[in-house]
Design a protein around this nucleic acid. Structure first.
Lengths: 197, 197, 197, 197
DNA sequence: TATGAATGAGAATTCATTCAT
DNA sequence: CATGAATGAATTCTCATTCAT
């Protein structure tokens, strides 16, 4: 549900989303209870159902929202018809940024696919595939253009995504590395990984 | 009825372990119920408790067993005092092999840390760190020896491990790629990634 | 269905207390099941947990409530600074009355101490000691004043309390003896017992 | 395996009885588990069933044994055709002795009647009544002979028994009072209580 | 005799969800 | 909009008991 007027409602909905992402990231979807969630938001459990028809649907909305955000954001951010190397650099930058900025959303989107009902699973996996395909396209173009040296574009997609996504599970803003440094390190590793010339 | 004949003690325990890994890999630890597990093993739910004192302890034992297996196996398999490049190749080979052979165990060990009780969590994370350190050592040695070009050994450890471990989430024995091919692809990507000379 | 109409919150809690005391008095705390209790109250077992966080805590609250009732009631009922003999008569009257009126509560409070968790046990025993001390004070005063002939005030406390409390295990309102008669009988025996002059 | 040679059997049975009385006295019959009992005896739970057909029957045997012991022992110990005052003194002495010596058995016999199945309950209550009647007879004789001043022999029976039996719940051999002293104190109180002339 | 493996019933408790107010 | 009271189904775990070996 989207909600239109009256500020309280949409504020509560946002609070639920935020709290849900935090709780799911911390304990896992199955381990989060609606009671915990309600407590954190400061409402009664029954009130959650004004905003989300079920616990499962709440998860779906979180994941869909995140994946659509990723794809549409990249869409508006990607460099125009550039060299695969430029596009890959931009992708690494984008991915690392969004996976540290929206760390918990990204984490949940990666971990909780299996908690979805079959129909929702297919829908969300399709969205994720869209995102993966963005990278596969870059890598394939680069291989075709002779500027990447990779044995298999699809496997490389999985490999690069896994490498980049992993950042969310250890990076902390308060840690040793600044975000700019982090992105540079990953950029160098990815460019070496794909054998960029 | 006592005893369903043919199912002797240690056999039952092994059956529980196997079934548990399958179920946890498929649905997640929280989502697996002891009833499901018992059904799959072919015993009554209560019988599980002869072998594992609690659902949580079952998870701990699964994870500890896997991580100890990894470390001790690598210990006996690693090449003797070799060039970092040789050692890294061996590590990739070893990791990909063990993460496709014991795919589900590996998956569970990577996904279910958060389902552990705090004390168990610390214990298991320490074991995992031991394993990570094996790779960090190789990378550091390579950097020091000038044969790897990497900005940060620790970040590279996370990156390489994430990349390699990810294989378990998509690779299937029956798929397009044979295991030898798979290992070669990953070896090439990793060697490029670390900037091996 | 939500709400069986007519059963509002505090009414339900009172119903649970009443039913619990009856069941525990009849079968013992360990033997009472939450299902039984819920059945008698007319709710689902889970609903009990809105009112009491656990079976054990329910017992604690029952015992504490009873013992606090006894002490505070005696406090407001005891005769003002009188002769030990007058005070003892009043105490016997009070104790027998409260142990026949609230027969089951008293019985439970006497029988189920051992079902308490250690911490709760200490708390409840302390409350009980407060009550015992009321009698010990009367007896000591009487001994000091020379109007009671007793070898040991503390042992006499136990003896008198045991004698009086025992009434709850056999006396029934519908039986041969009226409550006035009962109290007179016990008063005479206690006064003789302490050697009242 | 425990066993060696000889009449291990009856030794095991005795060990079960002893352990059972301890556990029941400490935690209550319902709270004692057959596993606990077996652990304490040093056998497997299943082995208990060689000696007692069920948990409930074990309780019955314990109670019956104790009550028969009491009656038969008093039978052989009671003073021959004496004055009610002499007989009462002897009874107090006997009761206090047996309720401190076999403290746990006595305690269990007093607390666990309600854990018996209906048929067993009637049987055990009948035995207990036999014992109570011994005291009622003494008191009635004393009243008739004019040497006791009591309003009701039956109520006095309950009162005196409650008073005396209560000793088991606080007296400890290692405590402040020796057993001789204890008996004297109780004798004096009881003699005063019944208004002995 | 005693064990070890198992059963099956039932225990306390949790939880997503509903709905009258 | 939100709550408070409740449901009903499921969950983990326990326990007396059985019985082949």
């Amino acid at each position: 549900m989207a909600r239109t007027t009256g500020s309280e409602g949409s504020r509560t909905e946002e609070a639920i989303r935020t709290a849900a992402v935090e709780l799911i990231a911390a304990h896992g979807f199955e381990a989060m209870t609606m009671r915990q969630l309600a407590d954190r938001v400061g409402v009664q459990p029954g009130s959650l159902y004004r905003y989300f028809p079920s616990k499962g649907q709440l998860l779906v909305e979180l994941l869909v929202e995140h994946l659509e955000f990723l794809v549409s954001r990249w869409d508006s951010e990607q460099p125009e018809d550039a060299d695969p190397r430029v596009r890959l650099r931009a992708f690494v930058d984008f991915h690392v940024r969004s996976h540290t900025l929206r760390r918990r959303e990204a984490f949940v989107a990666n971990m909780e696919l299996r908690s979805l009902a079959p129909g929702d699973y297919r829908r969300v996996v399709a969205l994720r595939r869209n995102y993966e395909n963005l990278l596969t396209a870059i890598l394939s173009d680069g291989i075709a253009a002779g500027c990447f040296r990779l044995p298999d574009a699809r496997v490389a997609t999985f490999a690069v995504l896994a490498m980049l996504t992993g950042v969310g599970s250890w990076y902390r803003d308060a840690g040793r590395l600044g975000k700019r440094e982090l992105i540079e390190i990953y950029t160098q590793m990815v460019m070496q990984c794909v054998g960029a010339q």
